[in-house]
Each structure stands twice: as C-alpha cells, then as structure tokens.
Write a protein that binds this DNA or RNA. Sequence first.
DNA 1: TCAGACCCTCACAG
DNA 2: ACTGTGAGGGTCT
Length: 286
Amino acid sequence: MLNEYFFETNSFNLDATLDSGQAFRWVAHQDSWSGIIHGRWVRLSSKTCGILAETTSPVTSWNWLADYLQLELDIESVLKSFPRDQHMEKAIHTCHGLRLLRQDPWETLASFILSSTKQIVQIRQIISILSERHGEPLKVPEGFAPAYDFPKPGTLAILSEKELRECKMGFRAPYLLEAARCVDSGALDLESIRALSLSEARLKLTSLHGVGNKIADCVLLFAYGFPEAFPVDVWIARALRELYFPKRKPTTKRLQNFISSYFGPNSGYAQQYLFHYMRNRETNLK
DNA sequence: TCAGACCCTCACAG
DNA sequence: ACTGTGAGGGTCT
C-alpha cells in the first residue's frame, strides 16, 4: 500500500535537480523518479502544479521529504542574489527550477570520496554495487527493482579494503574505509559540523585522507547546505576561465579570490547553475 | 608550485 | 572483433 502526498510548487525542476550530479542514486522512469531518502524508498513525479510523492512505508509526517527537497526555500530571492552578467543570466534561463538538495551527510561524504577522477556513470555504478552488497534491503512496490539503503558507517567499518575494492572503487577503497571508521568510532562527528563556520567545517572534512577542498565543499553544499561552499572541479574551473578570464590564465589562487568575491552570499547555488549550464551546453553541441 | 601515481572502466581510434 | 590509448565532479606525496 502506497502513501501519497502532493507538494504544491511551481519552481521546481525535478529532472534537472535529480540528474545534476549532486545525488547519484535516483533512477529515471517513464514519468517519475525513484530513489532512497533516509532509508525510505520514494517515487517522485513532476505534475503541472507540483510534485507527487509516493512511498512504501507508513508516513505520518512528510517533513523529511520537504527538507530533502528544500521546498521552503525562496528560490527567487536566491536567484536575485546572483551577479548580473550575461553568463549567469543564461544559466538562470537554461536551468529554470534547478535546486540544491539537502542530503544525508554520511551518504554524501562517502559518495563524493568515491567520485574522484570518475565519470558520473561510473560513480553511480560503484555506489549501486556498494549499496546492493552492503546496504539493508528496503521495501519496494511490486514491479520495481530491489532497492537498498546506503550502507551505514558501522557496516563499512568492519569490512576489509579488499571487500571494498570488489565494489570497483579502486584506490578510493582505503579512503572510504578510513572515513567509515572515523565516523563509526565517533572520532569524526558529522552532526557537529552543522554548527561550525565554513572554514572550520572544511578543515574537519579535509582532515580525512582522500578528502580535499573539492570533495569537502560538495559535502558542505549538498548535505549541510552551507550557501557559500563552492566546489571547484575541472568543469567549473574550465567554465570560469572560459567565461570570465578568456584572455588570461588565472592562477588557482586568483580564481579562488574571484569566486569568493564575485558570486555573493549564495555562491554555492550559483556554482550549481553554472555547472549545469555548461554541462548541458557541451551535450547540446555534440 | 608541480608532476606522477593511484584503480578501474568506458569511449573511441586504428 | 581486437588491442591500444586516454581520460574521467581529485588527492596525496
């Protein structure tokens, strides 16, 4: 028996959001997406006036989903805080309704540890194998593929590096193992990061092996919602150079200064719009 | 600052 | 079909 709920919203692009490289476990169907949020199987469908949500387990409150989707956020005021230049205008126009999710910190940290020098399809594959092998099976409606919760830190902490490598994660295995053990033992308290400043939070996360600034900022933006976290990957670096420094070749430091002074209080959101805009432009050119 | 290494897979040549 | 090659939402040494 499915539970249903309808969220009214006219400013949410489900396709763009769930396929934007911030989450790796959503599966596209004909007219809907299925995924797992906090151990629940969920199906989301985009309707003219909002989003229809269906889940298998009994639900008394839907706050967990409203929080995950950040439905309370006033996206218009976020967009207004972006710098007004032709590139951002185009990005806003192209990516209408693109949102940032508020994901689980552990899953996000683990996922992005697994993301380094990988294409998105490969990241999805690793995470899928890992969850299938080591995650709890979840209740799924008839006709849908089996689904698994993302493995808990404690579950991964007792595995061997070899068992993790069998999930095709290669040299990332020891990194994930260390992270799982740190979180499981309490040496790294993921909840306490919420209360920290951005730079303190970065220091905490980058103290893990295999977590540098890029991955730390992904976690801070996609899980904790730090509005000024700004992950700089090859795509964004290329985009910024091409769009804002077409003649010169700025150093990494200069690029950093530009980012922190130019994009304003919601620079993380601006980054997501630019990233999505550039990625779609590439595929459209092919 | 700057390569080179790291594991593995897939796309794309030839 | 079959092998070779390069690079992929990085990070460490």
